[in-house]
Design a protein around this nucleic acid. Structure first.
Lengths: 151, 151
DNA sequence: TTTCTTGTAACAATTTAGATTACAGGAGGA
DNA sequence: TCCTCCTGTAATCTAAATTGTTACAAGAAA
């Protein structure tokens, strides 16, 4: 098993974690409560039902992606742009883009000496990318405002 | 946190594991070597670069899905139908359909007393389903024969 | 300056996948 | 029929990742 190391690494990034729906929940809350009441990670935490630190970590990712504005001190969480301009794809990349692995995980050590093993990567990659692209395209069509409209 | 249990359960099935690309690799091998040489889980294991037991487990899933025919005794692994009739979606459902969770994981305990938390589920589910559908639709268009054609 | 809240480190607990060993039980050839 | 090969499957282990939790430094506003 310790034979042919591939350039692919054994890296495991899993796929879409709860972070994604949590992030959407956060944005929906911010949008909904903006102007009505101060929004803190603690409040978000209680609406979402996960630990406040988890919320803060995701908050940071959304901030880094330019989706949220955050100031310390008293309650300073707000959308950095209109909810109509934030797509689920934006949220997905903000929150999930760790290692850039995409949806699929490729097994790490196909045997290069096997006619199939040596080419499976190149033979499959294009298709996987197509699928991922279709997935992302649909995500780009759905906006945070679409979600909040249903609330 | 042990407050409001949702009907959603805390069930976590992760998403697309290596099983998927391994399964495709298996099918490509079977297709490629059929008639040329006997195919065993051991041989597949060495082409794929994962343990033979892992291969066998996936073999069973593919068999259960009606994609492969397997007999015990000597080398009896073959496609149960033409490679043109096996889509990546078939493989995906065969291998990944554990619990039927789909691509997304929903956080388990949104607060039902919060106007957002109480509705986030219903507000998001449709969109998530749309995205998943787009993903699956593209998968249905790609066949094992497309993969082997590139080998 | 005081207070609130973010930003972040450190670590435990949980979960999942894949690796490995072991072995019972068909299937087919000799 | 017997022998051998290989599948089917359980049990256990390891590694990786995610979430939960505690704790605290630092920034912003009142």
């Amino acid at each position: 098993m310790a034979g042919s190391l591939l350039f692919f690494s054994g890296g495991l990034d899993l796929q879409i974690s709860e972070r994604f729906t949590i992030a959407v929940h956060i944005l929906a809350c911010v949008r909904y409560f903006e102007g009505l009441q101060p929004i803190t990670s603690e409040i978000l935490s209680s609406s979402i039902g996960v630990n406040a630190v988890i919320v803060r970590r995701i908050l940071l990712q959304l901030k880094k992606a330019g989706i949220l504005s955050i100031t310390k001190g008293r309650a300073g969480i707000s959308l950095a742009k209109p909810a109509e301009d934030i797509t689920l794809y934006d949220v997905y990349t903000a929150v999930e883009a760790v290692g850039g692995g995409g949806l699929f995980r490729f097994h790490g050590n196909p045997n290069p000496d096997c006619p199939v093993g040596g080419k499976i990567h190149i033979a499959l990659d294009g298709s996987l990318r197509d699928i991922q692209t279709a997935f992302e395209a649909r995500m780009k069509e759905i906006k945070i405002s679409d979600i909040t409209a249903a609330i």
